[in-house]
Computed example of a mutant assay.
Amino acid sequence: MTPQAARRVLIVGAGIAGMSAAITLRRAGAEVDLIDIQPDFTVVGAGLTITGPTLRALDQLGVYEEVAAHGYTGDGIRVCAVDGTHLTDIPTPMPPGSKVRGSGGIGRPVLYRILSGRVLAAGVRPRFGLSVEDITQDTDGVTVTFSDHTLGRYDLVVGADGISSRTRRQIFPHAPSPQYTGQSVWRTFVPRPEGVDRRHYFLGGPVKVGWTPVSATRMYMFVVERTPRRIRTPGELPAALAELLTPYGGHIAGFRDAIGEDTEIAYRPLESFDLPGPWYQGRVILVGDAAHPTTPQLASGAGLAVEDALVLAEELARHDSVTAAFKAYADRHEARCRFVVDSSIEIGRLEQIQAPPAEQTAVVEAALARLVEPL
């Protein structure tokens, strides 16, 4: 059922949002061009925590079985004190009849391999090292000038080029820029100890520490730190991370002691912005972090990106014009995205003031309960 108003589509950005959009729009019958400024399917970061609603979206995308086979799926989040003492558990139930578990995790490179495989299998041949220099719209379509001086003509353009989106600047010249939230995150892979069967948070200390299993033998550990924005060189990361983990006991003490000069650590400041809606202009629409970047407190950024693709393809199939489809997409999905962004920022605020663990987990639990509602 080819969307009559979107027979030919350009997707800018080959991350999770862009690959998901390529899969859903090809499945709907559209002809898809996918470009990215990077030289290949570039993966940035270590692991991904996956909520139940995200697993549901991945199931609708058609990749849940692969994610479950190569990653981790389970239920619940265990909340611990700094010394490792068990405080409480946050349930992560999905509605009756759901075919997915309530929680999960996967290595980001593994998810990229799964999604890129589906993109190629759908007949999409990405063009890398390419960007958009100019977008010109008229009543019938969009003319795009690429960085290699070639032209393309499309029914619509999907901007999936991340938090620093050039597409966003091209259609909304006065859009806000990403701003530092006051927190930075550290990520690294650690062994999965025997008996660890779920996600963990360690609250009540100077930083928030957590881990998510990503396979039968590995987890990814994260540390969220309140700090002035700073640039750290790779060489200083191991010692600095070990120092942050000094107060923490249980398995974390063992992970800390195992950090060495060759430990691979990803470190980045957390940024966000609030872009007024709607997140489209004419025949160009923004998805994923290009429209609604979220900090990782609810582990829902990747899930929203996949949901964006699913909802966009569905609305394009239901409507006979791009304008009507984009409006229906915004009416159906924008509030959900804003809820995730706002809730994540609120959890980050509570972390920064070192609110009691129960106050932090209450926001997490309430937000996750709302996100299980159908799209």
Rank of each mutant, 00 (worst) to 15 (best):
T2M: 13
A6Y: 02
V12R: 07
G13I: 08
G15K: 10
G18P: 00
G18D: 01
M19T: 14
A22W: 03
A22M: 10
A28F: 10
I37G: 12
P39W: 04
V44R: 14
T51M: 08
T54L: 04
L55K: 02
R56S: 14
V63M: 04
V67Q: 08
Y72C: 04
R78D: 12
A81E: 12
D83E: 05
T88Y: 10
P93E: 06
M94F: 05
S98C: 05
S103F: 13
G105P: 04
R108D: 06
R125F: 11
F128M: 03
F128C: 04
V132L: 06
D134V: 12
V144D: 02
T150L: 03
T150F: 00
V157R: 05
A160L: 10
G162F: 02
I163W: 01
S165E: 01
R166G: 14
R166I: 06
R169E: 14
F172S: 05
A175D: 09
P176A: 09
P178Q: 03
Y180W: 08
V185A: 15
R187D: 01
P191Y: 03
G195L: 11
D197S: 15
G204E: 07
T212E: 08
A216R: 13
T217S: 14
R218S: 14
V224S: 11
T227P: 00
P228T: 12
P228N: 08
T233V: 08
E236G: 07
A242P: 01
E243N: 05
H251N: 11
A258H: 00
E261Q: 12
S272Y: 14
L286V: 09
L286C: 06
A299W: 02
V306P: 04
E315Y: 09
R318H: 14
A328H: 09
F339L: 15
E351Q: 13
Q354W: 09
P357D: 02
E365M: 06
L368H: 15
V372H: 05
E373C: 05
